[in-house]
Simulated assay, not measured.
Amino acid sequence: MPEAVTGQIGALLLAALRLGPVLAFAPPFTLVRMPMIVRAVLVVALAAAMPTMMRDAALPSRAAELAIAGVRELGVGIALALALQIAFAMIAVAGRALDIQAAFGLAFIIDPKTGAQTPLIGALFTYAAAAVFFATGGPLDVVRVLALSYRQVPLGSAGTPVDIGSLLAFLTATSVAAFGLVGLAVTLLFVVDLTVALSSRTMPQMNVLVLGFQVKAIVTLLVLPATIGLASAGIARILRLALEAMLSLAPHHG
Score class of each variant (00 low, 15 high):
L80W: 02
K216L: 09
L23S: 02
R237P: 01
A103M: 14
V76E: 01
L124H: 03
G75V: 07
L168N: 05
D163H: 04
V196M: 14
A169C: 08
L106T: 14
H253F: 10
T195D: 15
Q152D: 13
L80R: 02
K216T: 10
D56W: 08
V145P: 00
V208L: 11
A16K: 00
R144K: 15
A47F: 01
S199F: 13
P139D: 05
F108Y: 06
I164R: 13
T172Y: 03
A67E: 05
A92I: 06
A128E: 12
T160P: 03
V76D: 04
L209M: 07
L14E: 03
A57H: 08
G254I: 12
V41Q: 13
L31V: 10
R55A: 09
P225M: 11
L59R: 06
R201P: 04
A103K: 14
P28Y: 07
A236Q: 13
L221G: 14
L17M: 11
A245T: 03
V176N: 05
A197V: 15
F29C: 02
M34R: 08
L23A: 09
R55G: 08
G156W: 02
F104G: 03
F179S: 03
R62C: 12
A79Q: 01
N207A: 06
I91R: 00
F170A: 02
L146E: 03
R39E: 15
V215A: 12
A24S: 13
G138I: 02
V76H: 03
S199Q: 15
S157I: 07
P204V: 07
E65P: 04
Q117D: 09
A231Y: 04
G156F: 04
L66Y: 02
A58W: 09
L181W: 00
P154C: 05
V22I: 14
Q205A: 08
L74R: 13
V219K: 01
V153I: 10
V208N: 00
T52N: 15
V215C: 09
T30F: 02
S248E: 10
A147L: 12
P119H: 06
P225L: 13
A63H: 05
D111F: 04
A58R: 14
E65L: 13
A11I: 07
A130T: 06
M246I: 07
V44K: 06
V210W: 05
L23G: 02
T52I: 07
R96F: 11
L14D: 02
Q8F: 11
L80A: 01
G229T: 09
S200N: 09
L12S: 07
A83Y: 05
M53I: 09
R39S: 14
L82F: 08
A89M: 12
A26C: 15
F190W: 14
V192Q: 07
A217L: 10
Q85F: 09
A63F: 10
L209A: 08
L120W: 00
L189N: 00
A47D: 03
G254S: 12
M1S: 15
A242H: 05
R237S: 11
V71Y: 13
L243V: 07
F108Q: 01
L211T: 11
A233P: 04
A116T: 13
S232D: 03
I228Y: 00
F170I: 06
T30D: 04
G234H: 01
V182H: 00
I9M: 11
A245Y: 02
R151D: 10
T202R: 10
T136Y: 01
V22P: 03
T126W: 03
L198M: 09
L155A: 04
V215N: 07
S149N: 13
F88W: 14
L243D: 00
G234P: 05
A250N: 01
G229C: 06
